[in-house]
Design a protein around this nucleic acid. Sequence first.
DNA 1: GCCAACGTTGGC
DNA 2: GCCAACGTTGGC
Length: 154
Amino acid sequence: MTRRYWLMKSEPDVFGIETLAALPAQTTAWDGVRNYQARNMMRDEMKLGDRVFFYHSNCAEPGIVGIAEIVREAEPDITAENPESEYFDPKHSAENPRWFVVEVKLERRLKRNITLAEMKDDPALVEMPLVRRGNRLSVMPVSAAEWQHILTLE
DNA sequence: GCCAACGTTGGC
DNA sequence: GCCAACGTTGGC
């Protein structure tokens, strides 16, 4: 089975890598994804053992700050069932779930922040959706070659 | 805080 | 099914 690679964005003001690192099992359900493309990848393509770049977005220095692993495949996002939650969606139900989570576990933090700015300037990474103009996907695939290359930047 | 780019919604 | 209006994302 081929292990795949991903990048997932999170806003450090909302849920940063420090938050994940502070959790008992350094594990969290990746909830609140409300974009169909991102959902489809989480629901249909992410498999146990896949690895993930943890990316900080909407902050002073956007970039990759850690590596995580998929430790549980897709299941319904219960925040969508909770009217009190900001992620509530009346079109979602337990019987007919619309939104899903995967569970991710922190593998390690990177020694430094590999910034969006340097990735944008890197000829080896021009194909990454991350550096393409206007891309707003919060979950995106990373090729094996890109994964390896980014790790050499650390 | 601005705004480009994109996704979603809803009237027709 | 089209598309204008609106909302959101997220870099800068």
